[in-house]
């Protein structure tokens, strides 16, 4: 069992948790992920590492409540534990001094882009960050990102904070301005965002790394459920990734695979809410 040491509510649907996991923390590096299983009945879900502290033996995760598992996880509090926590999985980001780089985080993708941005900055890169969310209340860690960036652009879809628009808007302007050579771009966020970032950088020939978050069961190379089509054939996100060359990813296939279990996800959420509702009532009745 792995204890939750800290919980922050970053927005209605985005939560941060610091979890006691010395076995993961001692080796964790930017770009890697974990597999979380809340309890006996739960599924195994991949969550990227938002931060790590090898001395304290802790891992920080940030998640958006989009399905049954993340909703359930969101109801846990400091002092509660999760049943399984495996990692660090996948290859770490290749950190070196490339020159000027752009780090982009969309929505909950800001969490995994943060340790990568920090590591790139520490390695001596000039870092331009672009972060975005649908609206102001879904945006987090602007201050932390600002602290590890030389330049930062903030956008929201609805204009409630920063610039109104998509991440690709400032990206395109920077690339078109050609003020300096952009050595590499990292983009983490919803598949649709990473697809359009890759399409934007392609004509400029700027290498673009994306971090894929596909459906996984074991996360260790055993099931192949996470496979993604690249130019050179199918790869496993869990052992070959999670980072890939965004210009080589077959985005339509990826997005189609991501949506394959939508009906079941809906069923699971309904079932869980019903169950939780019943439990809450029982607890309330017991309290009286």
């Amino acid at each position: 069992m792995y204890k939750i040491l800290e919980k922050q509510v970053l927005s209605d649907v985005i939560k941060l948790m610091v979890i006691e996991a010395p076995h993961i923390a001692q080796r964790a590096k930017a770009g890697q992920f974990t597999i979380v299983r809340i309890d006996e009945q739960a599924e195994r879900i991949p969550l990227t590492i938002a931060d790590y502290d090898s001395k304290a033996g802790t891992i920080t995760i940030i998640f958006q409540e989009v399905g049954q598992s993340t909703m359930h996880l969101g109801t846990l509090n400091v002092g509660d534990s999760i049943a399984s926590f495996a990692g660090p999985l996948g290859h770490p980001t290749e950190i070196e001094n490339y020159g000027t780089v752009i780090c982009m985080g969309g929505g909950v993708g800001i969490a995994p882009i943060y340790p990568i941005t920090r590591a790139l900055k520490q390695a001596g890169n000039k870092v331009i960050s672009i972060i975005a969310a649908r609206s102001k209340d879904l945006l987090f860690w602007e201050d932390k990102m600002r602290a590890v960036s030389d330049e930062i652009h903030v956008c929201t879809d609805d204009g409630s904070h920063g610039r109104k628009g998509l991440v690709t808007d400032p990206l395109k302007e920077i690339l078109e301005a050609k003020k300096e050579n952009i050595a590499k771009v990292w983009a983490i966020g919803p598949a649709i965002m990473m697809k359009f970032v890759s399409l934007t950088t392609k004509p400029f020939n700027v290498p673009t790394i994306v971090s894929l978050n596909t459906i996984m069961i074991d996360g260790t190379g055993m099931c192949g459920g996470c496979r993604v089509l690249l130019d050179e054939g199918a790869k496993f996100v869990c052992v070959d990734g999670p980072e890939f060359d965004g210009h080589k990813v077959d985005w339509n296939s990826l997005m189609s695979r991501l949506s394959y279990y939508r009906e079941e996800e809906k069923m699971a959420v309904e079932h869980w809410k019903e169950h939780k509702c019943k439990l809450d009532k029982e607890i309330a009745a017991g309290g009286k």
């Binding site: 739960a42 195994r44 069961i217 055993m222 099931c223 079941e264 069923m267 699971a268």
Partner: peptide
């Protein structure tokens, strides 16, 4: 793995479909 390890045959009581 879905069926055996994750007990998918008991979905939605077990969460793996």
């Amino acid at each position: 793995t879905r069926v055996n390890l994750m007990k998918g045959y008991l979905f939605p009581n077990y969460s793996t479909p």
